[in-house]
Design a protein around this nucleic acid. Structure first.
Length: 588
RNA sequence: GGGGUCGUAGUUCAGUUGGUUAGAAUGCCGGCCUGUCACGCCGGAUGUCGCCGGUUCGAGCCCGGUCGGCCCCGCCA
């Protein structure tokens, strides 16, 4: 038997045709006489009917069919009689009257139902991922991901990009995330690292004159997992020669538009909004602002500096900052709501969470109301644009701490108020990042983006004297509060790269040792270049409206970075270790 | 490394103040059923209450530890 149609193909126009379908038994409805089976494949569902008057042999055989058995059926397409059409199915107007049944495989009872919309534990789903992926929602996610990748490839191919592969076995470089290491059998005691990203190779491809490169490529970072983070993940990696920020942004916007057109059928309207890093931190307390809702952060340090509330005044006097957000209309929050939000803030490192319920006539209901004069209250309410029924929260600490608490609080409030709409897609470019930031623990400057990001030309003079004041030519694309892509114009001159590495505490000798190949390449005619990388998994998570990156990855890892299906990672034979010159010093 | 939360039938869950024989739905098995589409009706079987230890006359329930899933902080240039 040769399959003629998928389980989503047939409609009224096919009535009378003899067809062959293949697929899995989703449900059976055995009436003793007539038997109905919902046959499922990747594309959809078709009802197939076994009627003893049509074919007694097929009908007799069909009694034994069970969930997930694999079938081939030949039959005639029939319009469903009377008002029996099922409007919930694409193929609901027809059914296939089977005259030949072949059982291609039987199946044990599946460990979890595939036809119900119930939550199954992740462990079980991942252990039987091949069953989980048969569920239509999961299949749809895989299809959507495929379409996204195709749209991206088509767009980039049409814009002069070359898809070039880069090594998976490469060398470990300092900075950045923890590497996954691969021991070398041929070179005793030496290790490859799996790439955290193809960053240096794509720069070398620009130096090689490839001009425009892209790759949809796995990257590896050995760090702890989150709902939106896996140790192996996929980047849409791209790099362009002879461009500045505007050209990278413009090409990228075109790609994102093509992507949303081909996946969700949405027409986005470039250019996307832009915001500097400083503005994002000031208004939203984070470099990845969710602009689907307002509730912006307001700086009240000036008022706090002279107020009667000792906690605020001391923070303001000590170089800290006092800021607040106004949760519009949340004056009805209960004591428990406020307690929950306070412990939420404390978990993030806040010492407490001052709140004020705004009443009629400018009255404050608040534990700290007594510390403020009428004038101060009026001034604060004015800054917060507060009216009767509003609720505001204060953060008083060092700027970074206040930003973290208020930005997370802002998101938590939005969650509670249902402001995080999944069918709204707000893009924002965040630009003008600082080049470096000082790490108090390590007592040195660290690159905010990565060490190959070009400093802004007008700031270069201060590179050595005041590194913290230098801005970079980096840009991030933020979608609904998630950083989905980031990149920069790179350093393409040997001297400048050495200077930046120096600022990062990497001297000439160490630089030559670790990045010598790049520095050498920069001496041999490196063109100006820049690019960016997208997190494909996170992008798909947003496009599909998923709560976890695992929903858009066929075979993801658990939070402990294991795979319940293959049971990886697993021990290996001692011989394998000795071949690799590895000597375990743990007890077996 | 730390915090939170969950773990009971194949699955999703309930299980009172610690009390005698641990339930429901669904699934599964058997029977009946020729127009269902989450088919229906009748009957039946199904438990290492994650694991180890402790308290107690008695533990699914209380305590300690441990393993695992998920969420978060740290970490993720």
């Amino acid at each position: 038997m040769v399959r003629t149609h998928s389980c989503n193909d047939l409609g009224k126009g096919n009535v009378g045709e003899e067809v062959v379908l293949m697929g899995w038994v989703l449900r059976r409805r055995d009436h003793g006489g007539v038997i109905f089976i919902d046959l499922r494949d990747r594309w959809g569902l078709t009802q197939i009917v076994f009627n003893p008057e049509v074919d007694a042999e097929a009908h007799a055989k069909a009694h034994q069919l069970r969930s997930e058995w694999v079938l081939a059926v030949r039959g005639r397409v029939a319009a469903r009689p009377g008002d029996m059409a099922n409007p919930k199915l694409a193929t609901g107007e027809i059914e296939v009257m089977v005259n030949e049944l072949r059982i291609l495989n039987s199946s044990e009872t599946p460990p979890f139902p595939l036809d119900e919309d119930i939550e199954i534990s992740d462990n079980l789903r991942l252990q039987y991922r091949y069953l989980d992926l048969r569920r239509p929602e999961m299949t749809a996610n895989m299809v959507m991901r495929h379409r996204a990748v195709q749209a991206i490839r088509t767009y980039l191919n049409d814009h002069g990009f070359l898809d070039i592969e880069t090594p998976m076995l490469t060398r470990s470089t300092p900075e950045g995330a923890r590497d996954y290491l691969v021991p070398s059998r041929v070179n005793a005691g030496k290790f490859y690292a799996l790439p955290q990203s193809p960053q240096l190779f794509k720069q070398l491809l620009m130096i090689a004159g490839m001009d425009r490169y892209y790759q949809i490529v796995k990257c590896f970072r050995d760090e702890d997992l989150r709902a939106d983070r896996q140790p192996e993940f996929t980047q849409i990696d791209m790099e362009l020669s002879f461009v500045d920020e505007e050209q990278v942004i413009s090409v990228t916007e075109g790609m994102v538009c093509a992507l949303f057109r081909e996946t969700l059928g949405l027409e986005l309207t470039p250019p996307f909004g832009r915001m500097t890093y400083d503005e994002a931190m000031g208004r939203y307390g984070t470099d990845r602002p969710d602009t689907r809702f307002a509730m912006e952060i307001v700086d009240l340090t000036a008022i706090a500096a002279t107020c009667g509330f000792k906690v605020f005044r001391e923070v303001a006097d000590g170089g800290g900052t006092v800021r607040a957000i106004n949760a519009k209309g949340c004056g009805s929050f209960s004591r428990k709501d406020l307690d929950d939000l306070t412990s939420f803030a404390v978990q993030l490192g806040a010492k407490g969470l001052a709140w004020v319920k705004m009443k009629a006539d400018g009255e404050w209901q608040s534990p700290i109301a007594k510390f403020f004069t009428d004038e101060e209250r009026t001034a604060i309410a004015g800054e917060l644009d507060a009216v009767d029924g509003d609720l505001f929260f204060f953060g008083a600490d060092k700027p970074a701490a206040v930003c973290q608490v208020l930005s997370e609080l802002r998101l938590e409030l939005a969650r509670r108020l249902g402001l995080l709409k999944k069918d709204v897609f707000n893009f924002t470019w965040v630009t003008d990042f600082p080049l470096v930031e000082y790490d108090d623990k390590e007592k040195r400057y660290q690159a905010l983006h990565h060490p190959f990001t070009a400093p802004r030309e007008e700031d270069v003079d201060r590179l050595e004297s005041d590194p913290g004041s230098v801005y970079s030519r980096a840009y991030d694309l933020v979608l609904n509060g998630t950083e989905i892509g980031g990149g920069s114009i790179r350093i393409h001159q040997r001297q400048m790269q050495a200077r930046v590495l120096q600022v990062l505490g990497i001297g000439e000798d160490e630089a030559r040792d670790k990045f010598g190949f790049l520095l050498r390449a920069l001496e041999l005619g490196a063109p100006p270049h820049g690019g960016l990388a997208f997190g494909l998994d996170r992008l798909m998570m947003i496009i599909t409206g998923s709560d976890s990156i695992r929903s858009v990855i066929a075979f993801p890892k658990t939070q402990k970075a294991t795979c319940p299906l293959t049971d990886a990672p697993a021990p290996v034979a001692r011989k394998q270790l000795t071949e690799l010159y590895l000597r375990p010093d743990w007890k077996e």
